[in-house]
Design a protein around this nucleic acid. Structure first.
Lengths: 124, 124
DNA sequence: TATACCAGTATCCTATAGGATACCATTAAT
DNA sequence: ATTAATGGTATCCTATAGGATACTGGTATA
């Protein structure tokens, strides 16, 4: 490699690795099997109770749902509201900040859909 | 709830849960800490050797890199080419199918960047 | 001749993700 | 009176993600 080439390459490398760091930051927030499904459900439903959310997300256990919701709340993506009824009503909803994940959600949904179609094709 | 309302709700639920399934399909492919960083690096670099890729992705161990690359290869997102030089040269590159993940990659990158900025703001 | 690069593999280890199951108090419906 | 729904918590368990460290055989470089 020539000197000039090497300098170019190193610039590319730095540029790339800083982008990767941003991706890793995002992934940390959305880590695990259930964060995106939960966010997706809440975006779609606007708001939901615990059990309803559990049914919607699929086969998540209450333990996991509870844990994931706490993490999402900590990161200000989800809001938990307790209404003083009897028995208490709890409402989970997506925050404005949570809504900023819509691009990710949609691109995941879109890719997943196409991927499923592709798998079907490949099996023929 | 009135009958009409219930019917509406059930439609919403079905609609939503099928979307969530697509998201879960996608997540299965990209599971773990390293798939997106690796794909991101390969999109950016076009092609790369093993060690170069390792440096680029960050602090991934060779064991994990090797494992993740195999999974990505199995899912046709990454291609491994061995050149018959001595010692052998191995080139990892992104496939055309791999490039279909660009929307996801970009939205993750974008969100991660903004999120990092937000965290900085919040700390002030 | 010692050191360093390449592309990984092998071995060992631990934390935790995540499932299964049971349970709680409260209230409304049958 | 019993069943079911609500919003979870408690306990137990296992698989595996993923880190740390060492190593290999071949080559080229200092």
């Amino acid at each position: 490699m020539e000197k000039q080439e090497i300098v170019e390459k190193q610039k590319t490398m730095k540029d790339c690795s800083s982008k990767i760091l941003a991706v890793r930051d995002a992934l940390e927030i959305f880590s695990g099997k259930w964060k995106f499904p939960i966010i997706g459900a809440l975006i779609h439903l606007q708001e939901s109770g615990f059990k309803e959310l559990q049914r919607m997300v699929g086969d998540i256990t209450p333990k996991m749902l509870s844990k994931e919701l706490k993490e999402l709340e900590m990161n200000h993506l989800v809001k938990r509201t307790v209404l003083d009824t009897r028995p208490v009503t709890v409402i989970y909803s997506i925050t404005e900040y949570g809504k900023t994940t819509q691009n990710i959600m949609y691109s995941l949904y879109e890719w997943g859909t196409k991927h499923r179609e592709k798998i079907k094709e490949d099996m023929k």
